[in-house]
Nucleic acid binder design. Structure first.
Lengths: 219, 219
DNA sequence: CACACTTTTAAACACCTGTTTGAAATGTAC
DNA sequence: GTACATTTCAAACAGGTGTTTAAAAGTGTG
C-alpha cells in the first residue's frame, strides 16, 4: 500500500517504536528492517551505522521540541521577578504534548526514547544533548536557580538530576506502571496524566529546604 | 594468591563489579570468567544460566538488606502516632551504608545494580523483588500512607515510583554525575552524600500537595 | 589403592550481531 | 535510448553471545 514512502522514513518509524519498546541494545537492525519492510543493508546505506540511526531517531523529536522550549525559557527569563517553580515546570507540558501531532503517540514515544537513551547507552545521549542543546538547558537551570535562591548551585545540579531520574525512569517503564495502576486502582492513565502528576511532585522536591547537616542521628 | 577461594564467590565478585559498571546486557560471561580467572563453563555449572547469576548477585545483598529494613519498618509501625516522612526515609540510610561491611564498595555497588536491574531487564527485577520481599515493601507503603493521610492511594503509588526513579537513575549514573560535580563544583561526592541529599528531596516530593485539577492554564 | 562424586577444562555448538560487498534494479537527465 | 547516478538486494563476513558436551582433573571415603 504505502510503498512509496521513502525508505529513510520507514526505517525511522520502525526503529523508534521498537527502540521505545525494547531499548536500543535489545533492538536489532534485522528487527527494524523487517518491520519497516526494507532491506537489511539500507540502514547502513542511509544512516551509516546503528549509532547514527539512534541519533537520527532522537533528532526528529529534539529539533522540534527544543526550539519551542528555548522560546518559552526566553519568555520567562524576560519577566523581571523570579518565576514560580511550578510555572517553570509547566512550560514543558504543551511542547511535550504537541509531539503527539508530529507522530501518533509522539509524546509517549519520545519520553520513552529519552529514558532508554539515558539508561541504555551510558553517557552517549547525555553528551549528544548537551552538545546540541546545551544553551537551552542552561537557560532552564538559570530559571530554576532564580526561583530557588536559597539553594546552592551544586544542590540545584543534584536535584535536577534526581528529577531527570524520575521522568526518565517513569517513562521507560510507563507501560508497566500504567498496567499496575489500572489493575490496582482501576484508574486509566495516559501520558498527560503522568506529566501532570509529576509537576507538583518535582516542584516540591526541587524547592525543598536543604538537609540540616548536624542532624546526624544515624551513622 | 587467593586461589583457594571457592569458584562461586570469585564469579559473584567479578560479576557484580562488571554488572555495576556496564549493566547486565553489556557484560558477557566471558568477561566475567576472565576477570574471575575461572573457566567459562563454570558459570552455567554453578548457577545454571546468566539470568540466575544475575539473581544470585542481587540476592547476596537483598537477603542482608531486606530483613533489616523489615525490622525497622516494624519498629516504626509499632509507634502509635504516624511517623514523619523524613524519619521513615532515614530508616534506609544505616542498612544501606552497612552494605559496605559486606563488600568493599557494597552500598554503591548494590544501588548501581538495583539501577541496572530496573532499567536493563525490563520488569524481571521488579517481579523478583516483589515476589521475595513484597511483604516488607507493603509495610513501607503503609508507613508512607499513614504519614501522608491527605494523599489518595494511587497518588502514593505514583510518587513512590517517581522516587524509585530518582534513586535508581542517580545510582546507575552515579559515576558520571560524581565526575561532573567534581569538575563543576570542586565537590567530592561519596555515595553517603548522595543518599543524604536524596532524603529531604524525596521527603518534600512525596508529601507535596496534589495538583489543583482546575488550574488548566495550559493545553 | 580403588571407588564414587564433584569440579574444572577445552572445544564445539547454534545462533545472533552490525557491517560490507558487488551485482541487479531503478530512477533521472540528456 | 543510452549513459550515469542512486538505491535495493541477497549473500557473505568477522566477531560475539549463552550454553552444552564429554573427557580430564581433583577430592574425599571406605
Amino acid at each position: 500500500m504505502s510503498s512509496k514512502v521513502h525508505t529513510q522514513q520507514r526505517i525511522l518509524d520502525a526503529a523508534q517504536s521498537l527502540f521505545a519498546e525494547s531499548g536500543f541494545n535489545d533492538t536489532s537492525l534485522r528487527q527494524i528492517t523487517t518491520k519497516a519492510e526494507v532491506n537489511l543493508a539500507s540502514v547502513n546505506y542511509h544512516f551509516g551505522s546503528k549509532k547514527e540511526l539512534i541519533q537520527a531517531v532522537l533528532q526528529r523529536y529534539l529539533q522540534v521540541l527544543m526550539p519551542r522550549l528555548d522560546q518559552e525559557f526566553d519568555r520567562l527569563l524576560a519577566s523581571q521577578k523570579p518565576n514560580d517553580l511550578t510555572q517553570i515546570l509547566s512550560v514543558f507540558v504543551k511542547p511535550l504534548l504537541d509531539l503527539n501531532q508530529l507522530q501518533r503517540r509522539g509524546t509517549r514515544t519520545f519520553l520513552q526514547l529519552l529514558g532508554r537513551g539515558y539508561t541504555d547507552v551510558q553517557g552517549h545521549l547525555r553528551w549528544f544533548i548537551n552538545q546540541h542543546y546545551g544553551r537551552t538547558l542552561d537557560k532552564f537551570v538559570l530559571l530554576v536557580q532564580q526561583s530557588c535562591p536559597h539553594l546552592p548551585q551544586s544542590e540545584v545540579f543534584w536535584r535536577l538530576h534526581f528529577s531527570l531520574g524520575s521522568i526518565v525512569f517513569t517513562m521507560a517503564s510507563s507501560d508497566a506502571l500504567s498496567e499496575i495502576a489500572q489493575a490496582d486502582f482501576n484508574e486509566a492513565v495516559d501520558i498527560e496524566g503522568v506529566i501532570r502528576r509529576l509537576i507538583p511532585y518535582l516542584g516540591a522536591a526541587i524547592a525543598a529546604p536543604v538537609y540540616s547537616q548536624d542532624l546526624k542521628t544515624v551513622a
